[in-house]
Design a binder for these strands. Structure first.
Lengths: 112, 112
DNA sequence: TTGTTATATAACGCAAACGTTATATAACAT
DNA sequence: ATGTTATATAACGTTTGCGTTATATAACAA
């Protein structure tokens, strides 16, 4: 899963996460995305390239503007990966529950 | 959310994801984790440090061994963040559905 | 005690990431 | 045509990340 490398790496940067958060509100152009940040336009352009490369956003061409929006596919892939960890953790919790149930049961035996 | 930086960055490395996958099967020592990989033990130790720093794993001390396992809270923070994107994308799909419904409705009107 | 096993840390090199400034391109307005 | 706006790309420096080897620590076994 080579693309998970790109997807997670893309999300690791706080500026890029902020860009994604902004795009969660709806489509935006490069300039609109750049405005809140204290970095230059080329820097934002490169962040967008990274996000696009990771499959997290898509862009269309509209005259001289390149409006961006969230792409669904990358997050799906991330979710699939995380599902493995989720189920493993759930299993551990189940085991812990079983242990606690055992303790509880033995306590009850002592009580009675 | 400074820790999201660490969490996503930790997951961005394929070796570290493989380690997490291995730990999903259950606790393992450093040597056990290192075995499948073609990298040295110090390299694995540092990957583990990164994973621990990101809150993705925990370690206990058992004699000279340091068995690792998945941290229970690990992915909750990540999930919370992703929820924002998920809901944004869901909203977009809803909008798309609405558009398609509109087209369908207008088609039906034409048909009749 | 002495050697071995399990792990961590230090020191170093190289490649990748992120920022900057300067410049290119291409659409739009005049 | 000419200037302006929106964006991309190139070139460069600095920081960070991942690997290595060499060495430290600390438990265990003899």
């Amino acid at each position: 899963m080579a693309n998970l490398d790109a997807a997670f790496a893309a999300m690791a940067d706080p500026t890029r996460r902020a860009i994604l958060a902004r795009l969660a509100l709806g489509e935006a152009t490069v300039m609109q995305l750049a405005a809140p940040f204290d970095i230059t336009q080329p820097a934002v352009s490169r962040h967008l390239k990274v996000l696009e490369g990771a499959g997290l956003i898509v862009r269309r061409i509209e005259g001289t503007k390149r409006p961006c929006r969230l792409a669904p596919t990358a997050i799906t892939e991330i979710d699939q990966w995380l599902d493995m960890l989720r189920s493993a953790l759930a299993k551990n919790y189940d085991r812990l529950d079983a242990v606690l149930d055992g303790i509880k049961a033995s306590d009850e035996r002592k009580q009675s």
